[in-house]
C-alpha cells in the first residue's frame, strides 16, 4: 500500500484525537459547539478518504451524513438550544482542565497499548485507525463524566459517536444499513435529549445536572 495513503489516513485520525482534546479544553458553550462542528468536518474528511482508499462508494454516503448531520444540523440545533436556555454566557468551572487533560493522555496511552496489542495481525490501515478511534471514544466518555452542564454532556456523547463511526469505517465491510440506522438513532437521541433539556430546566431552573442529585436527596 502506498505510504502516503496510510500517512494521510493517520493524520486525519490523529487530528480527530487532537480535536477531542480541544473539546476537553473549551469551557464556553459556543466555542465548544464550533469545535464539535470541526470534529465532524474532520470525521467527514477521514471517512471520505477511507472511501477513496478502500474503493467503497457507500462510505461516501457515510461521509455525507456526517457532514450534513453532525457538522451542520446538530451544531445549529444545539446553538439555538443554548441561546434559548440562556446559558451561552456560562463558563463551566469543573475541576482543573489540566487534570482532565492528564486523564485524557492516560486514556490515549491506554487505547494505544490495548488496540495495537490486540490487533497485531490486522491490516495496518485499520489497526492504527482503530487505536485512534478508541481514543476518541474514551475521550468522549471522559467529557461526559467531567462536565456538569447537560449540553456539554450531549457534545461528549456525540463526539463518542464520532469515534464509533471512525472505528467502523476503518474496518472494511460495515453495511450501509447499520451506518444509516446509527446516524438516525443519534438524531433521535438529539431530539429526545433536546426535549429533556427543556423539561429539566423547567423543573430545576438550571441544566446543571447536580440539581438532579439534590432532588434525589443525595446532597444536602
Amino acid at each position: 500500500m502506498d505510504r502516503f495513503v496510510l500517512d494521510f489516513a493517520h493524520t486525519l485520525a490523529g487530528f480527530m484525537v487532537l480535536v477531542s482534546f480541544m473539546l476537553l479544553y473549551q469551557d464556553r458553550m459556543f466555542s465548544l459547539l464550533n469545535v464539535f462542528a470541526l470534529q465532524a468536518l474532520v470525521l467527514a474528511a477521514s471517512v471520505a478518504w477511507q472511501a477513496h482508499v478502500q474503493d467503497a462508494p457507500h462510505l461516501y454516503v457515510t461521509a455525507l451524513i456526517a457532514l450534513v448531520l453532525k457538522a451542520i444540523i446538530i451544531p445549529i440545533v444545539l446553538h439555538r438550544v443554548v441561546v434559548r436556555l440562556g446559558i451561552h454566557r456560562n463558563i463551566e468551572t469543573v475541576g482543573g482542565i489540566g487534570l482532565t487533560m492528564l486523564f485524557g493522555m492516560g486514556l490515549v496511552a491506554l487505547s494505544m497499548v490495548v488496540m495495537l496489542r490486540a490487533t497485531a495481525a490486522a491490516d495496518p490501515l485499520a489497526r492504527e485507525d482503530l487505536a485512534f478511534a478508541l481514543s476518541v471514544v474514551l475521550l468522549g466518555l471522559l467529557m461526559m463524566v467531567t462536565r456538569r452542564n447537560a449540553v456539554s454532556q450531549i457534545i461528549g456523547f456525540m463526539s463518542l459517536e464520532n469515534g464509533l463511526i471512525l472505528a467502523a469505517t476503518g474496518a472494511k465491510g460495515m453495511p450501509l444499513v447499520v451506518e444509516i440506522s446509527v446516524a438516525f438513532s443519534v438524531l433521535v437521541a438529539l431530539i429526545v435529549i433536546g426535549v429533556f433539556l427543556f423539561r429539566i430546566r423547567e423543573r430545576f431552573d438550571s441544566v446543571d445536572v447536580h440539581a438532579l442529585d439534590e432532588s434525589r436527596g443525595e446532597r444536602q
Binding site: 482534546f21 489540566g98 490515549v108
Partner: peptide
C-alpha cells in the same frame, strides 16, 4: 496560561507516545 502551555506539553507528550507505540506514525 498554565492550561495553554499544558496543552503544548500534552501535544508533545502525545507525539512522543505515538512514536513509542508504533513506528509508522
Amino acid at each position: 496560561v498554565p492550561e495553554f502551555l499544558g496543552a503544548a506539553f500534552m501535544l508533545g507528550f502525545l507525539g512522543t507516545l505515538l512514536l513509542f507505540v508504533s513506528r509508522t506514525f
